[in-house]
Amino acid sequence: MSNFSVLKSEYGAYVDTLGEALERGDETAFFKAVDHIVHLREPKMFAEIRKLTGDLQKALDRFSIESRLADLAEHEIPNARTRLTHVINMTDEAAHRTLDLVEQSGPLAERTAREAAALLDAFAAFRERVPVTGFEGIVRSIEAFLPLVRAFEVFLPAARTDSEQIRRNLAEVLLAQGYQDLTGQIIRSVIKLVEELELALGNLTRLSGDMVEHATLGENPSAGQGPVVPGVTKGEVASAQTDVDALLSGLGM
């Protein structure tokens, strides 16, 4: 059956009744027939409205995803670039600081080892020399031992100074490893951004279907925001420990 013949079978009888009532001048019958026709039309009208609403909803969803994407492209991706550049700078700085300290410590340790070895050799030679007995022998022993004592007097303070310096350098190396924590936090925030981007793009391509998930990246300040990134972090920040101390003492701590 064609569409029009469906219409004809649905509406035909009422249109006939309508025509007859008009001819008869029967107002009650006329309006009754009109009511019937309106009732027939209603479900189709609602279906149309539903379809329109659905289309409108999709358009709005698309708009919200697209504007979020525009926001990501305009602000957060350049921010992420700045963050990652900061990561490179921090790792670079930490690596150089560590290398400098290692390069500085190596020669100190080598010098101590070299001088200790020379002293050990001299000491072994002293022990192995041909023993001479009597007073003269004792005097010779003392004479042979004196240069060793002088060498020890020079070596021991130098060894102590060098070891202390190496220990300090090691402590500095230890502290320099803190970059891993700070850069890790920044990289995590960039990963989170990439995840959001992925989700928003996925939603955009899925929009032909009915499922639309909204990407959310709510910032929760009490969960912490990670290290301060120059040019990205907004608001008043403490740039040094002295700022923190001043702020806390201002609060009575």
Binding site: G224, Q225, P227, V228, G235, V237, A238
Partner: peptide, 11 residues
């Protein structure tokens, strides 16, 4: 911590 915002320190 690396958190250095004024309001966080106060919090």
């Amino acid at each position: 911590t690396a958190e250095a915002k004024r309001e966080q320190i106060v919090e």
